[in-house]
């Protein structure tokens, strides 16, 4: 038993408004940034696979720029430098949340584009050939045939990215976004106690990630094509795991 564990303080932290709101902010930011990043990343992936040289060059440069620089630096850049460059970013709409959304989306898109690209490349070229033989348009083949199969390959690494992004939202505390980590450090400072406030934050992260993992398992079943409704356990072709928690 921990000698000085204050159960009351722990419960107080766990149920406090700032924690709830902080967790909600972190979750919201993760969700919107990941969604935006998926859209940008999809087009960047198509760009890298493009026949046109300049499109490939642009997509490659994008990935290079956002993967070669620290996320923290990108956050500072968006929050502090963008408003001085464009007055449009000096308005009241440009909140810490918006800045974090922009920075994390742009950053995450670079990582996701590589995941999406390997997903697209893993689909058997015979699938496209069959679509063309039926007279299907390029778009139609991409949407009905290639994308669903690429998504199945990409779900596990995208789940990984969601978790990484959730933890990256804590970086946004440095541009004064009140997320989960802010709530716990503020409580730490007020009570001069570390264990309970930080443990409470840890519980929040664990719960969020657990829920996410359950959603991911459901999605993977949905994208396993079988007439047996409950789904078989079929491992999709392995993709190399990328670790980049030190972004």
């Amino acid at each position: 038993m921990l000698a000085s564990f204050d159960t009351h303080l722990f419960w107080q932290a766990l149920s406090s408004g700032p924690y709830w709101r902080g967790a909600l902010t972190a979750l919201e930011l993760t969700a919107v940034a990941l969604s935006t990043a998926l859209i940008i990343g999809f087009f960047v992936a198509l760009g890298v696979l493009s026949q046109r040289r300049w499109v490939r060059g642009f997509a490659w440069s994008y990935n290079w720029l956002f993967r070669a620089t620290p996320t923290l630096l990108q956050l500072y850049f968006v929050w502090d430098v963008l408003p001085t460059l464009w007055h449009g970013f000096a308005g009241s709409w440009f909140t810490p949340f918006m800045a974090a959304w922009i920075a994390l989306s742009l950053n995450e898109a670079a990582y996701l584009s590589e995941i999406i690209r390997s997903g697209l490349m893993s689909v058997d070229p015979g699938q496209e050939l069959a679509g063309r033989a039926l007279g299907m348009s390029h778009r139609s083949i991409l949407r009905r045939v290639i994308m669903p199969q690429a998504i199945r390959i990409a779900i596990p690494p995208i789940g990984n990215e969601f978790i990484t992004l959730l933890k990256l939202t804590s970086l946004a505390s440095i541009i004064s976004l009140h997320e989960l980590l802010t709530a716990s450090t503020q409580l730490t400072a007020a009570k001069f106690e570390y264990t309970e406030p930080l443990l409470a934050a840890l519980v929040y992260y664990l719960v969020i990630v657990s829920v996410l993992m359950a959603i991911q398992a459901r999605l993977e079943r949905k994208f396993t094509w079988t007439s047996n409704r409950r789904g078989r356990r079929v491992a999709p072709p392995a993709m190399p795991a990328v670790s980049h928690d030190a972004r």
């Binding site: 058997d124 015979g126 699938q127 050939l129 069959a130 679509g131 033989a133 039926l134 007279g135 299907m136 348009s137 139609s140 009905r144 045939v145 669903p148 199969q149 199945r152 994208f223 094509w225 007439s227």
Partner: peptide, 23 residues
């Protein structure tokens, strides 16, 4: 085709329907 190239993400019926719907 030699290797059939059925759309892996579709049931047999959906494979056969696909061209009628999409094209």
């Amino acid at each position: 085709f030699q290797r059939f190239n059925l759309f892996q993400n579709m049931s047999a019926l959906d494979n056969v329907m696909c061209g009628l719907v999409e094209v």
